[in-house]
């Protein structure tokens, strides 16, 4: 059911780990629904110089995390903010329909980490606490219902 790309990123995930002195950290998801992504960013002059992740989740969650880290590395914050869930899924040669929400999670993890960075820098008031993740299970089920 998964593409070769997904299986490659699942079995050899890139950039797994933590960055102890990260400039931005974003956690999204909810263990209740079976997935959490935590993304660490190192940012210099608005450019993402290093990125690491930790994920609790299915094969697609691990693969999208891994792909998302590849996509943001070396990008400016502005470019990274524009990465969409669709772009993550496409870079993996697609995801099964029931797993599309994992790519949303990847997009949200990037955004949450950048928001955290901006907040730490005093660039924004916005908090990076996860309002999104609390809705997640219902969102997921909503998607599933629509497919049936």
């Amino acid at each position: 059911m998964y593409s070769e790309k997904v299986m490659d990123h699942f079995s050899n995930p890139r950039n797994v780990g933590e960055i102890p002195d990260a400039d931005g950290v974003g956690t999204v998801g909810n263990p209740k629904c079976g997935d959490i992504m935590k993304m660490y960013l190192k940012i210099e002059n608005d450019v993402i110089t290093d990125v690491k992740f930790k994920t609790f989740g299915c094969g697609a969650a691990v693969a999208t995390s891994s792909m998302a880290t590849e996509l943001v590395k070396g990008k400016t914050i502005e470019e990274a903010m524009k990465i969409t869930n669709k772009a993550v899924a496409e870079a993996l040669d697609g995801l099964p329909p029931v797993k599309m929400h994992c790519s949303n999670l990847a997009e949200e993890a990037i955004k949450a980490a950048i928001t955290d960075y901006r907040r730490k820098k005093g660039l924004t008031e916005e908090s990076s606490s996860c309002d999104v993740c609390c809705r997640r299970c219902e969102d997921v089920h909503h998607h599933l219902d629509e497919e049936e």
């Binding site: 299986m7 699942f10 094969g59 969650a61 691990v62």
Partner: peptide
């Protein structure tokens, strides 16, 4: 850890097992 990841890892090692009922796998 999450069951599907565990199953995929086992599958990569040539082991077929299950996480919950096979019939449940379509749902999250």
């Amino acid at each position: 850890i999450e069951g599907e990841s565990l199953l995929l890892m086992l599958d990569l090692k040539g082991i077929a097992a299950s996480s919950g009922s096979a019939c449940t796998s379509g749902s999250l």
